[in-house]
Simulated assay, not measured.
Amino acid sequence: MGTVRTVLGGRGLLESPRWHGDRLYVSDWSSGEVLAVDLAGRPEVVARVASLPLCTAWDPDDRLVLVDSPAGRLLRREPDGTLARHAELGRPGWNDIVIDGRGNAYVNRVGFDMMSGAEFRPGSVALVGRDGAVRDVADDIAFPNGMAVTADNATLIVADSYRNELVAFDMADDGALSGRRVWAGLGDAAPDGICVDAEGAVWYADVPHQRCVRVAEGGRVIRTVEVDRGCFACVLGGPGGTTLFITAATWRGVPEMVPAGTGRLLAVEVDVPGAGWP
């Protein structure tokens, strides 16, 4: 079993870890910053967007795409560091994003405003096609959170935090979804950010249980990594793809959420490398 180490500390609500090139990209929702962090823990601010949530993905053209949730749009980071409009989503409230190997972007949306105490409504997933067109492709996901695409571009997996399950869909070449099914029931776990590995297992982060868990299809638990604070998301990366990066922080619930300075980027070595997206 690997030892969990701290790569970066003293941050706010860290989310959306993405390994790209030789660095880990992560969003600090508290400060509205996207950071690129090297393996020595040295951070560089690469984008600033006043958005909560603030999730990211890399497209096949090596461009960083960011979710500007309040404005209901996707932004694209240009080579000179400026942010350009990538797509109009048309309404606020967006959460996570994953872009598959074809360039199709899946963005999910929570159906109600948690901060205002609004009446609960289930969420949905929208597809932003390569032509920029936006259309809904899945609905009735109680609280859509992390998403991942398998390495063969065949399956989209979505974490439904409120129903305590991972939901899977078959993916067509044009991005359409079909064949909805429960990929894994997770008992009382509340899955947040997820990633897929080369054996087809999924790692999910669990805030209330302060852990990341690797599960097989059907829900069999293969490995658990426990930490001392809520785990919000995880991704596999590093030189061999076998470092599990975890974003974690002390969770106080709505509206306080995360006390300043408790956010950490953690890392632990695992046996199976990452695959697919993110």
Rank of each mutant, 00 (worst) to 15 (best):
G219D: 12
A184N: 10
A201Q: 12
D80V: 13
S30F: 00
D173E: 15
G238S: 08
G200A: 12
D174W: 11
D139A: 14
V182G: 03
D100K: 01
P278T: 08
I97Q: 00
A260W: 03
L156D: 02
V227W: 02
A168N: 06
L35T: 00
D22S: 15
A184R: 09
G175R: 02
R214D: 05
D68N: 13
L66I: 15
E226S: 14
L66P: 03
C234Q: 07
I141M: 06
A118V: 07
S124N: 06
V98H: 05
G175W: 01
R229P: 01
V227Y: 02
G263S: 03
L127Q: 02
V213S: 01
R23P: 04
P273F: 07
I246M: 10
P43R: 00
N164E: 10
P273T: 07
R130V: 15
E199C: 10
P17V: 06
V26L: 06
V158R: 03
A184Q: 11
D140G: 10
A159F: 07
Y204D: 08
T155Y: 01
A189D: 14
R180H: 09
R102I: 09
L35G: 00
V235Q: 01
D38K: 05
S124P: 00
Q210K: 13
V221A: 08
L75Y: 04
T150V: 09
D22K: 11
A205G: 12
C195H: 04
P255D: 06
T243Y: 00
L8F: 09
Y106V: 06
G193I: 08
T224F: 08
W58G: 05
E226H: 09
R48N: 03
T155V: 15
P208S: 12
